[in-house]
Design a protein around this nucleic acid. Structure first.
Lengths: 206, 206
DNA sequence: TCATTTTTTCAGAATTACTTCAGAGATAAG
DNA sequence: CTTATCTCTGAAGTAATTCTGAAAAAATGA
């Protein structure tokens, strides 16, 4: 599902849905109570534990206060009982999407900031323009802060999970970004963690 | 058997199945009553005596209350009569798997914590990055808490039960981890128990 | 104590993963 | 159409992890 003029994709197995969500390529997740596999609560809880903040709407068969509490505790954003009013669902999805688009804070790390409006990487008084792909990769890294991002996830989010891009693309773009970071005297370093992925670190001063 | 999209492996001899299970590389064990070799009860009892907590589902031919009680006492987690409802079996396996997957909390011991997202071992304000293999071994040890882990089990889970890695690999990696634990001032110690394996302990203060 | 077994440590070798580069293909702008 | 920029590709170079075998140290038991 991407922005408005909602594109959707559905899976019937809860486990797999969870895996998809982790890829971080969706904007909102609708969870049906009657789904097979793990319980909805489990899916959400496990997503949250993995720091996946995708908004989740739970569609449930019956109204049960206990369940609702459980759901919310697990990290569900909104719960709707069937039969639900379609307009409410749409409104709710809109509201949740809003939250994302609203979070237009400029991501930063160390002395370096990514200016979304101009697509530039800024460090004190120096700046450098990023290409579209460079921008996407840099944004992901900045949003992850000091968490580790696997190449798989970066590929899925920047190139799309069904593209035929390979991991070398990520490596090449990380190379571009490193050069640009150096060129503006940033103290941010993109560190490769062998077999695990990439993460940001502050450059050690000599 | 791994998470969902269940991978399975089957053996027809109870004795051997028991040995496999002890390796600790399976998530759930389905035991068929009609199996040859030792009785199911024996297998389970012996596993439990060896502190192997792998969830066991017993599939039994006939409904016999006495047997059921016997099974549960032996340490079986769930009993199903044939012909059983596939959905019940799936639900039950799911629930059991859940117990495992739920332990996605960041494992810790003493003053030391393994941060899954960044792949770092953290102790108060100091931290150190682990390599992929170091990470796996440390995670196992932390998850085991103060239970004993044999080198055989560590090998099977980190290197795979069919790899040709030898016990020295485990010894070497335990060495790496000890050095890193010391480097961040952790009070956790990886203690070797001769002929048995490794376990975590708090370092004695002088 | 001494002999034996098991664990620890180490240094170098092998392997695997990452980095870089040069150039080809695409796409967009002038 | 030409030029410039961005993106992709494959190959070659580089570096870090992982493995290996052997020697040293520690534990066990006679």
């Amino acid at each position: 599902m991407k922005a408005k003029n909602l594109e959707t994709e559905s899976v019937s197995d809860g486990e797999i849905g969870g895996e998809y969500a982790e890829l971080g390529i969706y904007d909102v997740m609708l969870l049906d109570d009657t789904i097979s596999g793990k319980s909805c609560f489990e899916i959400v809880r496990s997503l949250r534990q993995k720091h996946c903040r995708v908004p989740v709407v739970l569609l449930t068969e019956k109204y049960d206060v206990e369940d609702r509490i459980k759901g919310l505790k697990a990290g569900v954003d909104y719960i709707m009982c069937m039969p639900y009013d379609n307009r409410e669902l749409l409104a709710c999805v809109d509201a949740l999407l809003q939250r994302i688009t609203d979070s237009t804070e400029e991501p930063f790390y160390g002395n370096t900031r990514l200016v979304l409006a101009s697509g530039k990487l800024v460090c004190e008084d120096r700046s450098v323009r990023l290409s579209a792909k460079e921008f996407e990769v840099m944004r992901l890294l900045l949003q992850a802060k000091d968490r580790l991002l696997s190449k798989e996830v970066i590929l899925a989010r920047v190139w799309g999970y069904d593209s035929n891009a390979v991991e070398n693309h990520v490596e090449v773009y990380v190379g571009f970004l490193r050069k640009k970071l150096r060129s503006i005297g940033s103290n941010v370093e993109i560190k490769a963690v062998r077999r695990m992925g990439y993460t940001l670190e502050l450059r050690e001063e000599a």
